[in-house]
């Protein structure tokens, strides 16, 4: 089943945010996704960011920079976003395994050029940023304080099929 994308965004303004920062390895001993929920971004050290703060609790979208999700193959990284209601990530680029894990879980990893990320981050500093996503049209809008930014994005037909199918298990099971 396809997930709902978009919503209130939080900005993580740094490149190379890694999987240990998203979910530390010591929590990988959990065997359910739900159990990961309290630990989202627990070890991320970033000015103005509080892993226990309201901005993260209210977020449905994450905006970040290059090489997001680098490091481990742990799917616990997308899962910990998923169980916190964050199904959409917008970044300049991703680590391969993290990006594939997102689509495999039926979640959305949008890639935008540097200038677009800069503009989104600048707009988010003025007021809370609301993102809407048109998956089939591959368009997104970000709005804050009466201003809007519109971008086209490009996800591969395969990744789009995974998102529409609700994930890779559903897709593969129907086909192979």
């Amino acid at each position: 089943m396809q997930k709902e994308f978009g919503g209130r965004a939080i900005v993580l303004d740094r490149s190379d945010i890694n999987t240990d920062e998203i979910i530390p390895a010591k929590y990988l001993t959990e065997v359910t996704k739900e159990a990961l929920k309290p630990y989202l971004l627990e070890d991320l050290k970033l000015e103005g960011f509080d892993p226990n703060g309201e901005a993260l609790a209210n977020a449905r979208v994450v905006i970040s920079r290059e090489n997001f999700g680098c490091g481990s193959s742990r799917e616990h990284a997308p899962w910990v976003f998923e169980v916190n209601g964050i199904y959409t990530i917008i970044a300049q680029s991703y680590a391969r395994i993290f990006r594939q894990n997102m689509f495999n879980c039926g979640m959305l990893a949008i890639e935008l050029p540097r200038a677009a990320i800069d503009a989104l981050i600048a707009l988010a500093t003025t007021a809370p940023l609301e993102v809407t996503v048109d998956l089939k049209g591959q368009k997104m809008t970000a709005a804050a304080a009466g201003q809007t930014l519109n971008y086209d994005f490009d996800i591969s037909p395969f990744d789009q099929a995974l998102v529409l199918a609700g994930g890779w298990v559903e897709f593969a099971d129907a086909r192979y």
Partner: peptide, 20 residues
């Protein structure tokens, strides 16, 4: 290649994995 749990799951079940 390192993969996530969903790719692993499909690998266990079907013996396939998708790559660019």
């Amino acid at each position: 290649a390192g993969v996530g749990t969903t790719d692993l799951e499909v690998g266990i079940l079907k013996g396939v994995c998708a790559f660019r």
